[in-house]
Design a protein around this nucleic acid. Structure first.
Lengths: 333, 333
DNA sequence: TCAAGGACTGCAATCGTTTGTAGCAGCCGT
DNA sequence: ACGGCTGCTACAAACGATTGCAGTCCTTGA
């Protein structure tokens, strides 16, 4: 039913190959021919069959995006960025959600790899070796995960923590608590480390409380321990955790920010809707997706010519001051 | 580099066609042959080339999902459901986000239609005519949008409002306000209508306040007007709006639910994290995506045999009582 | 005027599958 | 012993595009 290259060729009175060239290498065909082809194409609403093209070129024109959880606003934003940037270049995006199950990751990668020109992997749980193996077979760009030798875009966790600490220190806090994410989490480690050096450089005392799930529930679970540290401010692994803290603190009648300041990381939508609205370090989530696509497209375009492999783009965050942080209690008086 | 059907055939000592049949129509080939093929396939890690297959079968094995905004938790959940169900049948999902711009929808539909066996359209802004036109070209399943003659899955808005009203009436509320979504919104109209009949049947007075954006900002904008109605409870178009209301009410010192009850619709993640946690009608979002895929796969499977076209699945919501609804103020004393 | 060269265009092979049709056994019944 | 059947398997033609190569025609310089 849909028009084929031959139909166009027939209507334009030229050969299929000419039509093909008229479309992909316009200056290889004569001007009048090109015009005739153009008319025929429009008249027939011709659109090339991607499968056929892919068969011969070996390119699909698609990329795959793998993320742990679509319903997590952080990943949703990344996906949105990927999606938007990809469309500008007419490449379609397969989205796959691993449901936070590392076990399905590997299989998913393989299955997808066949159908795409490249993969964007968003903070996968898979080991560095597994990732490297995938990268052998296909072009891969990592987001939010640094693996030596692989290219990716990551957030500047150390700097983010520096900003958070600067903000808190300026408010007079001298003892702050860190509520960590999962032990295995790459970014939790980096954030804690960054926070530690920032604290030391400012002479602030840093206490850390356990590791918690990077979720709202993790936050409510962490709250009592955080309070017990007698810190005047707490830095949460991410906004979800911070919001969980807020809930539990509210329930206990602890006022934020009057009694305790809370700051998160990420700046998900929800953060500005919290009560009190959450101070946080905004990470450029959509932008990370956008950049990942750009890198991936470059990788795809240049066959093997000494690819800038192993390069990592690092994206800086931005301090967003809202109402969950305030002067340290002791200094208020 | 990757193994082809011919490679497998050579290794197994049979012809390519036999390999093909051994894989897709196993009982058309002899048992011993089938075993030999199986071994060769595994040895070579053979995976059929989807493009080549698609070229001849006309099927891609892919479906497309179009949603207005990936970062909106409601749509993200739907996408998650679609995605999960599709993977079970080994079909990949293209996700496209229109960024809430109706203008891009049509073009996006066309572009995607070529690359997929069917489309799932989630509450598009496009007109019924446009949608019908797309449905001429390809299989389409609508989510959250009823169009006569097209198949889709929708939420039972009337029933949801009935539940909400029953809940509020039972708490003694005699005057409730409706904060509507966009005028053009299909579900806003249905919800308002449903709420109206439910109110009448219970002798509750219903006042409606303007139409607002279906967002957090819409909710904060609506709050003052809602308060001005002197209703003791307000039903919001959706949870995002309800959460906006909560924020503004908090800022004005109006206590929820002591002074005013608030109830939303959808039950997005955020709702249980709000302070106070939000009572709402939970809509089976993931399930809607899942069902849409099942319908779509059926549609694809049966060529033209009197398809169950025009059928709509309707999914019922479930009242979730949290802390934003309570007894009407007058009855408390 | 003729040969050489350039600018276009057409031919045909090819990508990796699927699938209609034909061929080749072996087996049965008569 | 032979025709016909059944059960497999191989051949070859597609599907719709891209692309190296060869051919045509026109221009140009001597």
């Amino acid at each position: 039913m849909p028009a084929t290259l031959r139909d166009v060729a027939r209507l334009a009175g030229v050969s299929p190959s000419t039509v093909s060239r008229a479309l992909s290498l316009p200056d290889m065909v004569g001007e009048t021919t090109r015009a005739r082809v153009k008319i025929a194409v429009e008249q027939l609403h011709y659109q090339p069959n991607r499968a056929a093209r892919g068969l011969i070129t070996g390119r699909t024109g698609n990329v795959g995006l793998v993320i742990p959880d679509l319903a997590n606003p952080f990943f949703a934003s990344v996906a949105k960025g990927v999606q938007a940037r990809a469309r500008r270049d007419d490449v379609a995006v397969f989205v796959a959600d691993t449901d936070e199950e590392p076990a399905v990751e590997a299989g998913l990668f393989r299955a997808l790899a066949k159908q795409v020109d490249g993969l964007i992997l968003c903070s996968p749980r898979s080991s560095a070796e597994e990732l490297a193996a995938i990268a052998e077979d296909t072009n891969v760009v990592l987001i939010n995960r640094g693996v030596p030798g692989l290219t990716g875009v990551i957030f500047d966790d150390e700097d983010a923590m520096r900003q958070a600490m600067a903000h808190l220190a300026a408010l007079g806090h001298r003892r702050v608590a860190w509520v960590g994410g999962p032990e295995a989490s790459w970014s939790s480690q980096h954030r804690e480390a960054g926070l530690r050096v920032a604290a030391e450089s400012r002479g602030v005392e840093l206490v850390t409380v356990g590791s918690f799930a990077p979720t709202y529930e993790g936050g409510v679970a962490a709250a009592d321990q955080a309070v017990a540290t007698e810190a005047t401010a707490v830095v949460a692994y991410n906004d979800l955790v911070a919001i969980g803290l807020l809930t539990r603190l509210h329930a206990r009648g602890i006022s934020v920010p009057d009694d305790l300041s809370v700051i998160g990381v990420d700046d998900i939508e929800m953060s500005r809707m919290a009560i009190p609205s959450l101070s946080t370090i905004r990470m450029p989530k959509q932008r990370s997706g956008q950049i990942a696509v750009e890198i991936l497209l470059d990788l795809i375009a240049m066959p093997e010519m000494l690819p800038p492999i192993g390069r990592q783009s690092v994206l800086a965050g931005e301090l967003i001051v809202r109402n969950s942080t305030g002067p340290a209690p002791s200094t208020r008086a």
